[in-house]
Design a protein around this nucleic acid. Structure first.
Length: 546
RNA sequence: GCCCUCGUCGUCUAGGGGUUAGGACACAGCCCUUUCAAGGCUGCAACGGGGAUUCGAAUUCCCCCGAGGGCACCA
């Protein structure tokens, strides 16, 4: 059987396939599009749809087109177009044709294509495949509500189809509001083969004569998409599953006009944790929000690709290049996917950990610079510890290896390293941390005093006669390095007969204002002797005498 | 109400007649450890239910149940 043959082939080529879905041509002229309506930020679901389109285009050397569906004047907001475009660019998605760069099938904004829709509507009218409807919206609404009350499915009763030419003429001359409806053929089976969902059959009797041009002259969605997709020579329509039920209507438009059908691929929905449609109450759902939270574009892409698609039984990490090579419409599954922020975060952490140090340095420098600027604009200017851009970069270069394995988002990283650049704010909780602890405030003072003393020695050696520590530690040199610091602090902790964990906790809290910090010895080195000693003193002041 | 879909660990998924039903996230434990991570090891955990076909069903078919989407002068 064909199925078996294909299975063999695909196993060899490591590409999964359902042969019965592969009867289409992807060898040339692949043209796909992403067609957002500008009503808000770029949503995770839309981003995933966009990504799949883009991957498919890249993989097949096709064209990826960006089109803005802004026919609904009431809902669309101009500024959101910019924001959507920004998000796409941030993700690294580029397009070959679009509203900003043009192209030979433009314009790429539906609001600029109104003449086209009207021309086709007139053509259908002339061919009697569509007809004027003079029913008012109120009338229709009443009818619909009545039907719903009776538990019936409402379908337009075609009353305007039976109007005489004279009546029509009369209405038009009187300037009565008119919409245009498509004349849906009776009892026709509409069939299409969806790449993901397989063969879909719908009887046209289930579809009413839907409006294609509204009384305000604007086209409705099912009409304009069909026309645009056909005119823009879109070969594969890849979009969310919520459009599956609309596809027959669009096919009716294709057929009425005589357009060739494209290939349809519907993607399973992305749902929230509770299985409901992903919405604001599930938390952040825009690409923009994740960008701000410190997620990397490559991590977003990787995670999004895994929603509804899998390559094999093991791999979870895919570079964009991997995805382009391995992506296939055949391996998209049907089940709706629940968005899992934890996994996204894990993937993001993975990308941070595996990022080249230099790249992280660049990214973090930029982010810290933003924070510095914020401080500069407030009265907290004196809290900034780093003065020059060079100093900042040098510092971050040293910091990156310490923190890249410890954070999952850039924001988390910013927070972890902030005390390198700004004075520490000690919370009440931190100030009182050692009350009722094994190490009481008095003991903590002692630790701080001794540590201060010991650290002071580094660099002032060998002229340090008061050093009580040196007998147990012969190798005090003049370099303020993490190795040196570690040796001295461990020796000190030992001498004080303390568990080093507890000893270190005092220092950590004093230096970082937190129980969590980057590795202590390196932190002290980078912070520098003076700042370290200064912070030890600052914190000591919060410790009430025993 | 009608139409269209979907149903494997908590989550993303692999698996398409014979598997100890595999991996990843999360979770738990242990190891490592100056905190937090990272890393290593181990564990927990799934075929919605019922029939049918078959020697054999997570896999094919039917019914039920559950879930999502659509049915607008929204996109």
């Amino acid at each position: 059987m064909q199925r078996n043959m294909c299975k063999t082939v695909t196993k060899n080529s490591l590409v999964k396939s359902n042969s019965n879905r592969s009867n289409y041509n992807t060898s040339n002229n692949v043209r796909v599009r992403f067609a957002p309506s500008p009503t808000g930020y770029l949503h995770l679901g839309s981003a995933r749809t966009c990504l799949f389109n883009w991957l498919f285009a890249k993989k097949n050397n096709g064209n990826f087109i960006l089109r803005i569906e802004d026919t609904d004047i009431k809902r669309h907001q101009e500024n959101t177009i910019t924001s959507i475009i920004e998000s796409l660019k941030w993700l690294g998605i580029n397009w070959d044709e679009g509203p900003d760069i043009g192209g030979k099938y433009g314009p790429y904004r539906q609001s600029q294509r109104l003449d086209i829709y009207n021309q086709y509507a007139q053509k259908l009218l002339k061919e009697q495949k569509a007809y004027y409807c003079f029913c008012t919206q109120e009338e229709l609404k009443t009818q619909r509500e009545k039907a719903e009350k009776e538990g019936k499915f409402y379908k337009y009763d075609r009353r305007c189809l039976n109007l005489s030419e004279k009546e029509i003429k009369g209405y038009i001359e009187n300037g009565k509001e008119k919409a245009i409806r498509l004349l849906v053929p009776k009892d026709k089976t509409i069939v299409f083969e969806d790449t993901v969902y397989g063969k879909i059959e719908v009887n046209s009797n289930n579809i009413e004569d839907f409006i294609i041009i509204r009384s305000n002259g604007l086209p409705t969605y099912n009409f304009s998409v069909a026309i645009d997709d056909a005119l823009m020579k879109i070969s594969h329509i890849i979009r969310g599953e919520d459009h599956l039920s609309n596809t027959p209507k669009q096919l009716l438009v294709y057929d009425a006009i005589g357009f060739k059908h494209p290939i349809f691929t519907h993607l399973p929905m992305i749902l929230g944790y509770d299985g409901q449609k992903l919405s604001k109450r599930h938390g952040s759902i825009s690409i923009e929000a994740y960008r701000e939270e410190g997620y990397l574009p490559e991590a977003m892409i990787n995670y999004l690709a895994l929603l509804g698609w899998a390559y094999d039984e093991k791999t979870t990490i895919f570079s964009v290049q991997d995805l382009i090579e391995k992506f296939s419409l055949h391996s998209i599954n049907k089940k709706p996917a629940k968005f899992d922020p934890q996994k996204l975060t894990w993937i993001n952490g993975y990308y941070i950990r595996n990022m080249k140090d230099e790249k992280l340095v660049t990214i973090l420098s930029e982010r810290i610079r933003v924070r510095i600027k914020e401080k500069e604009e407030t009265k907290a200017k004196n809290q900034i510890l780093v003065k020059s851009k060079t100093a900042l970069n040098e510092k971050i270069t040293k910091i990156v290896p310490l923190v890249k394995e410890r954070v999952k988002t850039l924001k988390e990283c910013d927070n972890l390293i902030a005390p390198f650049f700004f004075e520490v704010d000690y919370t009440e909780e931190i100030k009182n941390y050692f009350k009722n602890k094994d190490i009481n405030p008095g003991k903590a003072r002692e630790i701080i005093d001794k540590t201060t003393e010991a650290l002071s020695l580094i660099g002032s050696w060998p002229s340090a006669p008061s050093l009580t520590l040196t007998p147990t530690h012969p190798k005090v040199s003049s370099e303020f390095t993490s190795t040196q610091i570690e040796e001295i602090l461990r020796a000190l902790s030992n001498k004080l007969n303390l568990d080093f964990r507890k000893f270190a906790e005092v220092i950590r809290i004093a230096l970082w204002g937190s129980t969590i910090s980057p590795p202590l010895f390196e932190t002290i080195e980078i912070l520098g002797k003076d700042e370290t000693i200064k912070r030890l003193a600052t914190y000591k002041a919060f410790l009430s005498p025993a």
